[in-house]
Amino acid sequence: MSVIAVPKVRSKRVTTGVTLSRRTGMVFVLPALILFAVFIAYPLFTALSYSFFAWTGIVRGDFVWFDNYVTLFTKLPYSTDIPNAFLHNILLFVGAMVFQNTIGLGLATLLHRIGRFKQFFQTMYTLPYLVSPLVIGYLWSLMLSPLFGPVNAVLRAVGLDELAQPWLGNPQTAIWVVVIVTAWQWIGFPVLLYGAALGGIPAELDEAASLDGASAWQRFRSVTLPLMVPAIGTVSVLTFIGAMEAFPIPYALGGSQGNPAGATDVLSLLFYRTAFESGASNAIGTSSAIATLLFAFIFGVAVLFTVMLRRAERNLT
């Protein structure tokens, strides 16, 4: 009995198709890679290289190894400004997380359960997220003005004169104004993300728990919330990155000096002030060291969060 050999035309066609699809995908990805390389990767590596040199104005001097980094933690004003600014960045992150994982998640759950006007409210909550943070900051600075701001005017009108105060002029309240304004602007993003995650949870799971006698809170805590872990993790990572890179709102509310008395200072403002306003002879080297440390910290913590998120997702399956 003879055996007829069949040429492997199909496998060759499949291989060719895969190769073409990969090449097509690279063509579409290439513009994004070029933009990333030009506007992100190149400035990062440039800042890293600048941080290892001494500078006189814009003239590069000798290679000084880690002297610029040592300066940040041993010489004034950096040794006091960096811990102060870093603490404010952490407060921004914690405050945003508290707002987003309580109010944001609550709003998303409420909108998920109602059918009427759902898209309208989603749009309303998302509008501040679409406006420039610098514009948001300036608008809130006008609203909180102790002279003509509507916030203090309303407080006085309802008999709460003792609460009316210069919110951005008091070091005790200024940083919390920055935290609240930042959380208020970005609340629309977690509302949308949590809403999408809630829509992806099968309704049968909630119905089964209800038939077993579970209350609404028990169903949310034991069924819905564990399935929301991936969305919560994504919001946490993006919130951390945004809080550590915060610049427009602190700048609009407190200026480049982080007024009053450094109460609204953050690391990005410190970098900007060192690079463009300090007048120091080695401003480029010192500010590049600040930028490099900030990037290393953000990147390291973001990678750690991502690893923990993926582990939590694997535990759900």
Rank of each mutant, 00 (worst) to 15 (best):
48 L>S: 05
200 G>M: 06
94 V>S: 03
49 S>G: 02
39 F>D: 04
105 L>A: 12
231 A>E: 04
277 E>T: 13
286 T>M: 00
138 Y>K: 13
5 A>D: 09
62 D>P: 02
177 V>P: 00
208 A>C: 04
133 P>E: 09
268 S>G: 07
162 E>Y: 10
84 N>M: 14
129 Y>N: 10
276 F>I: 04
83 P>S: 12
2 S>E: 05
287 S>P: 01
25 G>M: 10
161 D>L: 00
5 A>F: 08
137 G>Y: 02
173 T>W: 11
45 F>K: 00
138 Y>H: 07
308 M>S: 11
25 G>T: 10
32 A>W: 09
141 S>V: 02
17 G>D: 08
282 N>S: 04
264 T>P: 00
128 P>R: 13
282 N>A: 04
43 P>I: 11
208 A>I: 13
206 D>M: 10
30 L>F: 15
207 E>W: 03
104 G>M: 03
42 Y>L: 15
59 V>L: 10
255 G>K: 07
233 G>M: 04
65 W>H: 10
233 G>S: 13
177 V>W: 00
239 T>A: 12
201 I>Q: 11
79 S>V: 12
86 F>D: 12
225 L>G: 06
206 D>G: 05
249 I>H: 01
14 V>L: 12
171 P>V: 11
275 A>C: 00
297 F>A: 15
160 L>R: 05
56 T>H: 14
283 A>H: 02
270 L>H: 08
221 R>N: 06
176 W>K: 03
275 A>Q: 06
